[in-house]
Amino acid sequence: MLTWEEFEKVEMRVGTILEVRDFEKALNPAYQLTIDFGELGIKRSSAQITVLYQKEGLIGKQVIAVVNFPVKQIANFFSECLVLGLVGADKTITLLQPERAVPNGLRVA
């Protein structure tokens, strides 16, 4: 079991997607996302969400991400946060989002 103190170390924040690019060097189809986390700044992430989401529809969408993991190199790209989603039986990912627009950087509690 995870302790409350351990859970509190995971910093999940809301951010708005500013830019989406195809990640051509990824092993599995993915996008490179640029996300605004308000006072935490701009972070980049790789996300395997190409099945349910088109690039144009992601711009301006708010998402939830873990922002305090170490940077992870994926091919020639450095992912600075982990965008969270629900994994379906067919491995498609549905993004976690706030139910209404909120300020970027708010922490999940």
Score class of each variant (00 low, 15 high):
residue 108 V to A: 11
residue 98 P to R: 13
residue 42 I to S: 01
residue 49 I to F: 06
residue 39 E to K: 13
residue 82 L to G: 06
residue 72 K to P: 00
residue 9 K to R: 12
residue 48 Q to S: 04
residue 26 A to K: 05
residue 23 F to V: 08
residue 12 M to L: 04
residue 11 E to N: 13
residue 10 V to Y: 09
residue 5 E to P: 00
residue 102 V to Q: 05
residue 14 V to K: 05
residue 79 S to D: 07
residue 108 V to K: 09
residue 45 S to I: 02
residue 65 A to L: 03
residue 59 I to P: 01
residue 107 R to E: 07
residue 57 G to D: 15
residue 87 V to Y: 04
residue 19 E to K: 14
residue 86 L to I: 11
residue 1 M to W: 13
residue 37 F to R: 02
residue 2 L to A: 04
residue 81 C to H: 14
residue 26 A to T: 04
residue 20 V to F: 08
residue 102 V to N: 03
residue 81 C to T: 10
residue 64 I to E: 09
residue 92 T to V: 01
residue 69 F to G: 05
residue 15 G to N: 05
residue 46 S to A: 15
residue 28 N to S: 11
residue 70 P to A: 06
residue 105 G to L: 01
residue 44 R to E: 15
residue 19 E to D: 12
residue 9 K to Y: 10
residue 37 F to G: 02
residue 88 G to L: 11
residue 20 V to R: 07
residue 80 E to H: 03
residue 87 V to F: 01
residue 7 F to M: 10
residue 66 V to Q: 11
residue 97 Q to K: 14
residue 56 E to A: 08
residue 55 K to Y: 13
residue 18 L to K: 12
residue 47 A to W: 06
residue 10 V to S: 04
residue 39 E to M: 02
residue 35 I to D: 07
residue 4 W to F: 15
residue 97 Q to W: 09
residue 91 K to P: 04
residue 50 T to L: 00
residue 21 R to N: 15
residue 40 L to S: 01
residue 22 D to S: 07
residue 91 K to Y: 15
residue 99 E to G: 06
residue 71 V to N: 14
residue 101 A to G: 03
residue 39 E to V: 01
residue 21 R to F: 10
residue 60 G to L: 06
residue 36 D to W: 09
residue 28 N to D: 10
residue 38 G to E: 10
residue 55 K to E: 12
residue 61 K to H: 13
residue 63 V to H: 10
residue 107 R to H: 06
residue 6 E to D: 13
residue 59 I to C: 03
residue 106 L to G: 01
residue 96 L to S: 03
residue 92 T to Q: 13
residue 27 L to Q: 14
residue 20 V to E: 09
residue 33 L to Q: 11
residue 100 R to G: 04
residue 83 V to D: 08
residue 58 L to V: 00
residue 103 P to H: 14
residue 86 L to H: 13
residue 50 T to H: 10
residue 35 I to A: 05
residue 103 P to Y: 13
residue 48 Q to T: 01
residue 33 L to F: 11
residue 107 R to C: 02
residue 4 W to P: 02
residue 62 Q to C: 02
residue 76 N to F: 05
residue 99 E to C: 03
residue 67 V to A: 07
residue 105 G to C: 03
residue 22 D to P: 00
residue 19 E to F: 01
residue 98 P to A: 07
residue 70 P to N: 11
residue 53 Y to K: 11
residue 10 V to K: 05
